[in-house]
Computed example of a mutant assay.
Amino acid sequence: MTSQFPYRLYLVTDELACLGRDFYWVAEEAIKGGVDIVQLREKKLDDRQFLQKAEKLKVICDRYKVPLIINDNVNVAQWVEADGIHVGQSDTAIHEVQKALGVDFPIGLSIEKMNDIKDPYSNLAWYYGVSPVFSTPTKTDTIAEWGLEGLSELKTMSTKALIAIGNIKIQNAASVIAAGADCLAVVSGICSAESPAKAAELFRKEIDLGLKIREK
């Protein structure tokens, strides 16, 4: 597995957040605007529906050379030859995913509390999804928000890339990066934007600003 995680803006898909617009149009516009990694997360679909969606999205991602990550579905990840898989604390165990997909297959892991990184299997992760940085109505199954202080503390305790998710907005993007996030995972901030491409562009500018603040 590569230890490198060069990505800065991570789109997590949500059909409902697209507000009735074409899902694939939203995803492609987001990529055009600066999204450089995409996760297909559609937990209400059965395997057949999930596979069909993944196949279509993979074509778009491949066109722009953007990695496609599949959320907690080993079979779909294999079938579409995805670039990675993401699992949460209550999803398929990360060591079981590794057994199925191989030791070199990139696996992202959600971290909901500091003790999660003490699990010996957590070290198998390609990156940590810090969830949620701020409480969000789109994800209600988490324990508590990390906040900027929690994110900064985690940064000092782990060498993994930290992907911040949870109510990430253009207005707080720079501060989240400055606090220690390596990448921002965005759902409605891009999917629901009037222009997904413009929203992605603005997020990228704020990410750059956050990196400059962090370097001072």
Rank of each mutant, 00 (worst) to 15 (best):
M1I: 00
Y7K: 14
Y7C: 10
Y7N: 09
D14P: 02
A17M: 10
C18K: 03
C18H: 06
G20I: 10
G20D: 14
R21Q: 08
Y24I: 04
A27W: 03
G33M: 08
V35Y: 04
V35R: 03
K44R: 15
L45H: 11
D47P: 12
R48F: 14
F50M: 13
F50I: 04
K56V: 04
K58Y: 03
I60Y: 05
C61T: 14
C61N: 06
L68P: 01
L68T: 08
I69E: 11
I70R: 05
N73A: 04
A77D: 00
A77N: 03
Q78L: 13
W79F: 11
V80I: 11
D83C: 01
G84A: 07
H86I: 02
V87G: 03
G88T: 02
A100F: 08
G102H: 12
V103L: 07
V103I: 09
D104I: 00
D104W: 01
I117G: 02
K118W: 09
K118N: 12
D119I: 07
Y121N: 12
Y121I: 01
Y121V: 05
N123C: 06
W126K: 13
Y128K: 11
G129K: 10
V130C: 07
V133R: 14
S135G: 13
T136F: 11
P137C: 10
T140V: 12
D141V: 03
I143T: 09
W146E: 00
L148G: 08
E149M: 06
L151K: 06
L154D: 01
K155S: 13
T159N: 15
T159S: 15
A161S: 15
I163W: 03
A164M: 10
A164Q: 10
I165R: 09
I165G: 04
G166E: 00
Q171I: 04
Q171D: 14
N172R: 13
A173T: 13
V176C: 00
A179D: 05
G180Y: 03
G180D: 07
A181D: 00
D182H: 14
D182F: 04
V186H: 02
S188A: 11
S192C: 07
S192Y: 08
E194W: 10
S195N: 12
P196Q: 14
K198H: 13
A199Q: 05
A199S: 14
F203V: 10
R204L: 14
E206I: 09
I207L: 03
G210Q: 07
K212M: 09
R214A: 15
R214Y: 07
